[in-house]
Amino acid sequence: MTAPIRHAAFCGAAVLLLAAAPAGAGQCGGTIYLTFDTGSQSQAELIAATLKRHAIRATFFLANEKTVRGDHALDPSWAGYWQARVAEGHAFGSHTFDHVYYTGDGPRGTIGVRPQFGAAAGKRQQWTAAQYCAEIKRVDARFAELTGHHLDPLWRAPGGKVSQRTIAAAHSCGYAHVGWAPAGFSGDELSSTAYPNAVLLKKSLDTLRDGDIFMAHMGIWSRRDAWAPANLEPLIAGLEKKGFCFATLREHPGFGKGHIQR
Rank of each mutant, 00 (worst) to 15 (best):
L34F: 01
C133T: 01
V139E: 01
M1I: 02
I220W: 04
L201D: 00
K123H: 13
L74Y: 12
A194W: 12
D212Y: 10
L51K: 03
A79R: 14
W227C: 04
H252I: 00
Q116A: 12
G256A: 06
A183H: 13
I236L: 04
Y132T: 04
A44S: 11
R209Q: 15
R57L: 05
A87P: 06
S42C: 12
P153H: 02
H259I: 06
R85L: 15
T166S: 06
K242Y: 12
G179S: 11
R262Q: 15
L249S: 06
R69P: 03
L151H: 13
T207L: 01
A170H: 03
G26P: 15
Q261N: 13
F10A: 14
L232M: 04
M218S: 10
V162W: 13
T147Y: 01
Y33L: 01
W78F: 10
P76K: 02
G24C: 08
L200A: 05
D188A: 03
K241L: 14
G109P: 10
A121N: 09
R138M: 11
R85F: 08
D212V: 13
A44I: 00
K161T: 03
F255E: 02
K241H: 15
T103M: 02
H177W: 07
A134S: 10
F214H: 10
G30D: 01
A129G: 14
K52E: 15
G174A: 04
F255Q: 01
G256W: 07
L146Y: 00
H259C: 09
A247R: 12
G159I: 14
R69V: 03
G148W: 05
S222R: 13
T110M: 02
F60E: 00
A170R: 00
A228W: 00
V178P: 01
A19P: 12
G254Q: 09
W221K: 14
W221E: 13
G254N: 06
L235G: 03
I56T: 05
A13Q: 11
F10Q: 12
L235T: 14
T96C: 13
N231D: 08
K123W: 07
